[in-house]
Structure formats: structure tokens, C-alpha cells
Write a protein that binds this DNA or RNA. Structure first.
Length: 459
RNA sequence: UCCCCAGUAGCUCAGUUGGCAGAGCAAUUGGCUGUUAACCAAUGGGUCCGCGGUUCAAAUCCGUGCUGGGGAGCCA
């Protein structure tokens, strides 16, 4: 007999008769005549109720079933006379695969997120975390679906990179030198290292993506990214996933159009395909989520320049901890004011002063600002960071010189501006931040299966 | 890294002015019931985060370290 998953069972209109299910017991209630068990198999939020009668030959064993126990059950799928579920299984056979002893850390009651983080290997067995990671899976799929439909090519950028100057924060060094090698040489001799030079984990696939955009046209990378920043916040982890589209023959406007289309597509996909899991978050995590989803889906995102944003902030009469002035990098309190209070919807901020942005962003005609764009979202802050890239070789070289960047490691990057250079643009979208946005989860550690943060690499 | 808060039973937490360590849930045992955060009763369960100090006496006050949370910076 073939196994049926619970997400299929609970949606049936008519009973197929006998069914076979496999899963884990979430809770059990006993009576003298029979036991009620709720089984979950991870396929959906819902459990299936199983009724085990005391005439089953292993009923004594069944009475010993505990929360967390894995089972294989055969029985008739019948309409449930009880409230709360359409179907239940009248078991004709209950096979215990593995009994969970009393030390099983998950109880029927609600646990705190902080506690569940200490048992990250077991937390996907809870309703909330099961839902989070099903949504995460579905959203990863939706990203590939969106880009395939738009004719983008998927690029896997290298995770180990040779340059230490991608300019997006502290990097993790990759080396095969042993501590004793280093001690003997008195230093890290990279010429003796695996790659013959210093190597690091990537902080962005952008530079690779640019090369492929200038070859395949429209591409995207979607994969892990690493930052060795000592960041201790609810919005940062050392290893996270980033989506980075890069488009040839695209300017800043096109970049924003694309970002807005992407976000709206992913939100619509979530609402359509993760309805049941999302309902948990709507009910128990953040009651304002449906409103935010509606805003994301149906309202045009605001678009304004950094300069205009500064003016709005100056005129706001808000008491900010950090004073607003042209040339400063916006603080989170400023970004939150713009997205949450002033516009009350996502905001694209463009054209930042060149001094606070990296070398590869395209110089605007005013020679003061660059064609950067950040998407600020209520509660999350920066969801997207990107730019139109500097495609003019002379301008690019000037900027690198101004910022004291060595040219040699970038010879290949500069080559792309020598041979058939075209305007192009792209951005990075933090996958985990997107998940936080649509689930209302407030700590990024709770949307990552096994989060890596300063001082924590368990599991 | 900086600022603030917290750490007491397996979990969530209470603990008064410094004076015998507590509750709910969970677990175990029994009872009862088409139950559904089931219900009722009994039982077991403690390095009060670690170290040092003040005191006749410290979960409680002081110092310090560790861990966790919130905020900031950095960014996605």
C-alpha cells in the first residue's frame, strides 16, 4: 500500500477508504476504549487525528506512545464526528517506528523562540517553525520560477573569492595553512597556501554576475553569502542567502521596476501557495501582516532621491538621535521614519552621495551622486540594495583611484568595460529579510535553519 | 563593539524589607471522558547561571565573568 501525505489527505472531498500514513505524534489523549493521536508528517501545518481502539493487538504498546514518537498507521479515512477536523483515521494497524522518551524537549504547549533556538535541530517539528521552513522552501522555488518565466539565466557565483576588496564588509578567510605552518613561518605565507594567494568567502556574487549579464543578458545568482562582521542584531547573520539579479541594457529606473515586480510576484506567490502556513503568522505572530501584504501587492512603491529624502527628514520635526544633514548615511531611525510613518509603504531611495557608496556605482551627471538604490520596507529596513553600474571605463578607473583600490585584482572586471561595455544594473535582495517581512518573524535567526552568528556555530 | 534588560524545577514564570524554594504546564502513577492546549487526583523533580565579596544569615545587596534578549553601528 502506498503512503499518503497529510496535506493530500486533509484536502480530500471523498474518502478513498483505507490509507497509509507515516509521521510523528504531536499529542495524544487516552481513554479506556481508545486513544486519540494527532499525527504530523511535515507536509503541512495540519495534523491528522488517529483513533486507536483498545481491540488492537498491540494496544498496551500504543498506550505508551508519547509526543514525538514516529508511527506508521494504516486505517480507514472516515468523516470525524468530533469538532475541529473533517477527517480522521480509524486505525487498523499502528506500528511504532521509534518511541520518543520522556526527555523529548518539545511539549504540547507554546515554547519561547529563545528556547527553541537552543534546540534548533528539533524546532522544525513545531507548528511555527515547520511553517517558516515550508514557506522558505516555497519562496526559493518562486524565485527560480519568476526568473525562468522572465528568461533570466541562473548563475552560481563562486563562494571562494581571491580578492579581499569587494567592499561589502569583513570577510572570512579561507586557508589550508595549519597553525603550525603559520607559527613556523612567523606569518601567514599565502604563496604557500592552497590558492597561492589570499582567499575569502564571498560577500556578494555581484562582480561575477556582471560578467555573465554582459554575456547572457539577464542573469541572477541565488546562494549563500558570508559576512564576518561582529553584528549582534535581530537582522544580521554571518551566513545568509542573497538573490542578486543583474541585467544588461538596464538603467536605474529599470532596476527599480524589476525590484518592485519581483517583490510583488513573490508576495502573490506566497499568498497563493502558502496560504495555510501564512495563516498561522496572520493569527499568532503579527495581526497587521495581511495589511502589509496588501500594501506590497497593490500599492506602487514610493521612489525618491536621497536629496529629497533628506529634505523630508529635515522638515519632519521628528526628534532623531542622529541629526540629519546632506552627506550622512541614513540611520535606521531615518529609514524607518520614511517607510513606516511618512510613506507607510516600501520606498526606493536613489542617487546617494558618492562618498558613502562603493566604487562600482555609476556616477550621475551632477558628479556628486551615484545611481544607487535601496528599497526600504516597513519594519525590515533595507530589503534591497543595488545600483546602475559604472559602465564607462575611464570613470570607473577614476573612482577606483580616488578610493585607493588596486587595479590588478580587478583586471578582469575592467576588461568588461573595455570590450563591448553596456549600461547595466542589478541589486541584492536579502532572502531572510524577505522571509521576515512576509512572516512577521522579528529575529532573522528564526528564519534560518541553523543560524550562524558571532560566537555561535552549533548544529 | 557600545548602551539597556534578564538568567530560579524539563518549559513559562512568581518569589514582599536580606530570614525554611514556589505556581502553572510537562513528566510519572491512577481515575474518567468522542477527545482536541482534554479533565480530576496523587507522586517525583532545584549547582536559584559561574566565581569572589558584604552579612549572624544572600535567589535577593556589591564586584566580576559567561549566556540570552532588546536597541545602536555595519549591512542584505
Amino acid at each position: 500500500m502506498k503512503r499518503t501525505k497529510i496535506n493530500i489527505l486533509t484536502r480530500l472531498e471523498t474518502t478513498p477508504g483505507q490509507v497509509l500514513v507515516k509521521g510523528w505524534v504531536r499529542t495524544k489523549r487516552d481513554s479506556k476504549e481508545f486513544s486519540f493521536m494527532e499525527m504530523n508528517d511535515g507536509s503541512c501545518l495540519k495534523n491528522i487525528q488517529i483513533i486507536a481502539n483498545n481491540n488492537l493487538d498491540n494496544y498496551l504498546e500504543i498506550q505508551g506512545i508519547t509526543t514525538g514518537t514516529s508511527l506508521i498507521v494504516i486505517g480507514d479515512l472516515v468523516e470525524s464526528p468530533g469538532k475541529g477536523q473533517k477527517w480522521e483515521i480509524q486505525a487498523s494497524s499502528v506500528e511504532i517506528v521509534n518511541l520518543a522518551p520522556e526527555s523529548y524537549p518539545l511539549q504540547k504547549k507554546r515554547h519561547s523562540d529563545e528556547y527553541l533556538r537552543t534546540i534548533a535541530h528539533l524546532r522544525p517539528r513545531t507548528n511555527k517553525y515547520g511553517a517558516i521552513f515550508r514557506i522558505r522552501s516555497e519562496m526559493a522555488f518562486a524565485i527560480h520560477k519568476f526568473y525562468r518565466e522572465k528568461g533570466f539565466k541562473y548563475l552560481t557565483a563562486p563562494l571562494i573569492t581571491g580578492s579581499d576588496c569587494e567592499g561589502a564588509g569583513e570577510m572570512f578567510r579561507v586557508t589550508s595553512l595549519s597553525p603550525s605552518d603559520v607559527q613556523a613561518a612567523g606569518k601567514m605565507d599565502f604563496t604557500k597556501d592552497f590558492f597561492g594567494q589570499e582567499a575569502n568567502l564571498t560577500v556578494s556574487g555581484q562582480l561575477s554576475a556582471e560578467m555573465f549579464a554582459l554575456s547572457l543578458g539577464d542573469v541572477y545568482t541565488f546562494g549563500p553569502t558570508f559576512r564576518a562582521e561582529n553584528s549582534n542584531t535581530s537582522r544580521h547573520v554571518a551566513e545568509f542567502w542573497m538573490l542578486e539579479p543583474e541585467m544588461a541594457f538596464c538603467d536605474l529606473e529599470g532596476n527599480m521596476d524589476h525590484g518592485e515586480e519581483l517583490v510583488k510576484y513573490l508576495v502573490a506567490h506566497a499568498l497563493e501557495f502558502c496560504e495555510e502556513d501564512l495563516s498561522l503568522f496572520f493569527q499568532f505572530v503579527d495581526k497587521s501582516l495581511p495589511g502589509l501584504m496588501d500594501t506590497l501587492l497593490n500599492q506602487e512603491f514610493a521612489r525618491l532621491s536621497y536629496t529629497e529624502a533628506i529634505k523630508i527628514l529635515e522638515k519632519s520635526n521628528q526628534k532623531f538621535e542622529f541629526n540629519v544633514a546632506y552627506g550622512i548615511d541614513l540611520q535606521s531611525e531615518h529609514e524607518r521614519y520614511l517607510a513606516e510613518q511618512y510613506f507607510k509603504k516600501p520606498v526606493f531611495l536613489t542617487d546617494y552621495p558618492k562618498g558613502i557608496k562603493p566604487f562600482y556605482m555609476r556616477m550621475n551627471d551632477d558628479e556628486k551622486t551615484v545611481a544607487a538604490v535601496d528599497l526600504l520596507v516597513p519594519r525590515i529596513g533595507e530589503l534591497i540594495g543595488g545600483s546602475q553600474r559604472e559602465e564607462r571605463l575611464d570613470r570607473l578607473e577614476n573612482r577606483m583611484e580616488e578610493m585607493n583600490l588596486p587595479r590588478d585584482p580587478y583586471w578582469w572586471y575592467l576588461d568588461s568595460r573595455k570590450f563591448g561595455s553596456v549600461p547595466h544594473a542589478g541589486f541584492g535582495l536579502g532572502f531572510e529579510r524577505f522571509l521576515m517581512m512576509i512572516t512577521g518573524v522579528t529575529n532573522i535567526r528564526d528564519v534560518v535553519p541553523f543560524p550562524r552568528t558571532p560566537g555561535n556555530v552549533d548544529f
